[in-house]
Design a protein around this nucleic acid. Structure first.
Lengths: 140, 140
DNA sequence: GTCAATGCAAACTTTTTGCAACTCC
DNA sequence: GGAGTTGCAAAAAGTTTGCATTGAC
């Protein structure tokens, strides 16, 4: 959290109560995947007063631009945000129940990189999830 | 096209002018990826009168349920529809310019299946695209 | 005091839904 | 004639934007 605030300050940006609250929520995010609405809700609780959704979006956008956050799409619902990691991971989502698991990038990168290279592409990040059926939904 | 119409009829569904036009558009789709709006626009031209977007969505939904179509998400814009193929393919999309290439499923399935299996999942289809940078955008 | 950031409201995009009118079988 | 379909309009969900006011520096 201190890191996020410091980075914003280093960019010449102003540190408002709303931003502080959002940074706190984001920093406290473990490997959770929060939607913008989730972040907003928690920020409101942290701050004890309403924080506008547009402010949440704008702040998340800033943090994403600075490289602290990524947002991914796990399904048809809202996009979800999570802290950037060194390694990164793909997401495997059940089409039926929505359960999601993280897949270390190292498990899939070799092939994806190779395939992408065949088309002149460079795979970067994991903006969309891989879809399938989880164990429970297969048996059901 | 005849096949689509026949299938609808076989399901006890009614063949209207709008449906015929939409089926014609869809059947004429090579390996293009059309959004619902694209399909609607072409159907209007084919038919010479307006076809409501809701009718397009409902018809595409029927065709998808019957297994003739799939829809995928290539980026943040509208979903796109394409005819089902025996083989199927993934999509590799440039984050920068949006250029998309099809990747044969056989090129990536082995790994994806293996990784998914490690988590008890079964990968099915390719509902979301893989993202990266195309050759042009890398050099730029 | 300035200028960035906020909150509010309104626009926007894509997709879905309720419902009366229609028309295909 | 009766049920499946349509078109229209309105709603829904997620996100973005314009703008006057506020507040950080």
């Amino acid at each position: 959290m201190e890191e996020l605030i410091a980075a914003l300050r280093a960019e010449g940006m102003r540190i408002t109560e709303s931003r502080k609250a959002i940074c706190e929520v984001v920093a406290a995010t473990g490997d959770e995947h929060l939607s913008a609405a989730d972040v907003g809700e928690r920020a409101c609780q942290t701050l004890g007063r309403p924080v506008d959704q547009s402010t949440v979006y704008r702040t998340l956008d800033v943090l994403e631009t600075l490289g602290f956050l990524h947002h991914v799409h796990l399904g048809h619902g809202p996009g979800v945000y999570h802290l950037s990691e060194d390694a990164g991971h793909h997401h495997l989502v059940c089409e039926n129940c929505g359960a999601a698991v993280d897949v270390p990038l190292t498990d899939v990168s070799p092939i994806l990189d190779k395939v992408a290279a065949q088309h002149g592409y460079t795979v970067r990040g994991a903006h969309f999830a891989l879809t399938g059926l989880c164990g429970d939904c297969q048996t059901a």
